[in-house]
């Protein structure tokens, strides 16, 4: 318990909040790393996930690949990458992208795949092309599930971005490594608490966003007229 007190004392110390190694600076670095990683991972995972969810093709292969990627230990991958790319922020970012892609991919194809077939058929019958179906039907209806994958990826990246400090002078992981190696456990614990707090805050924010997205989509679904029209449309297609 006293270590928690010491950790909070460390956090409250104004010296920790000033200069190039200040908490604010490290928090900012941590957030930027997280945003870059999740951004790139989304750019990879969203198109692939949409393609799989929409066509149903390549599902087995991509699920297997994503599962394998989940099993890769990030620290091991980071070490190998850093041996190839040298020290700095590039290797951790690539390693974290490998970590972030699987949950994003899973959220995306699961979301798209679970959109009611009847709804898609209705859209198609109404004359929408495939692109319009994806953009105007599938993506809005799948948005909250995709956001779920996004949430889970972000959470994992924030927690694991501490590893960036393994080969570069960046992120909240610096406090954890420095504290661990010099037996300054209050500093280490303070670093861990900061990471946890950041993860919880971001996750809360994203969960609110997720609920808003879901509410904006779902009230429209059970309308009596579409329920009547549904079976006849299905029969027609």
């Amino acid at each position: 318990m006293s270590m928690f007190l010491e950790a909070f004392t460390w956090l409250a110390d104004s010296a920790a909040w000033m200069g190039a190694t200040s908490i604010g600076h490290r928090l900012g670095q941590h957030l930027i790393i997280t945003m870059i990683v999740v951004g790139i991972a989304a750019a990879i995972a969203l198109p692939v996930g949409i393609a799989i969810g929409h066509t149903g093709r390549g599902r087995g292969f991509v699920i297997a690949a994503a599962g394998a990627a989940r099993a890769v230990p990030t620290l091991g991958l980071l070490t190998i990458l850093a041996l190839a790319m040298g020290i700095g922020i590039t290797a951790p970012i690539v390693a974290l992208i490998v970590l972030a892609v699987p949950p994003l991919l899973a959220g995306t194809y699961a979301g798209i795949e679970n959109v009611e077939r009847t709804t898609i058929d209705a859209a198609r019958a109404a004359g929408m092309n495939e692109f319009q179906i994806i953009v105007h039907v599938e993506l809005p209806l799948a948005a909250h599930v995709i956001l779920g994958g996004f949430r889970s990826a972000t959470l994992q990246v924030i927690a694991t971005a501490t590893l960036a400090a393994y080969v570069s002078d960046s992120g909240l992981g610096r406090y954890i490594f420095a504290g661990l190696k010099s037996r300054d456990y209050p500093q280490m614990l303070a670093g861990a608490l900061l990471v946890a707090a950041l993860a919880i805050l971001i996750d809360l924010g994203l969960s609110v966003l997720q609920r808003m997205v879901r509410r904006s989509v779902e009230p429209r679904m059970p309308r009596p007229r579409s329920r009547v029209a549904g079976p006849s449309l299905k029969g027609a297609s």
């Binding site: 070490t79 850093a82 041996l83 040298g86 020290i87 393994y166 080969v167 002078d169």
Partner: peptide, 22 residues
């Protein structure tokens, strides 16, 4: 100046030396 490499003078550190990163 200082940059952390957490492998205790291992291969990552040697690589950084040879690259001129440190």
């Amino acid at each position: 100046d200082f940059t952390p490499i957490e492998d205790g003078g291992g291969p990552l550190t040697v690589k950084a030396l040879k690259d001129g990163a440190i």
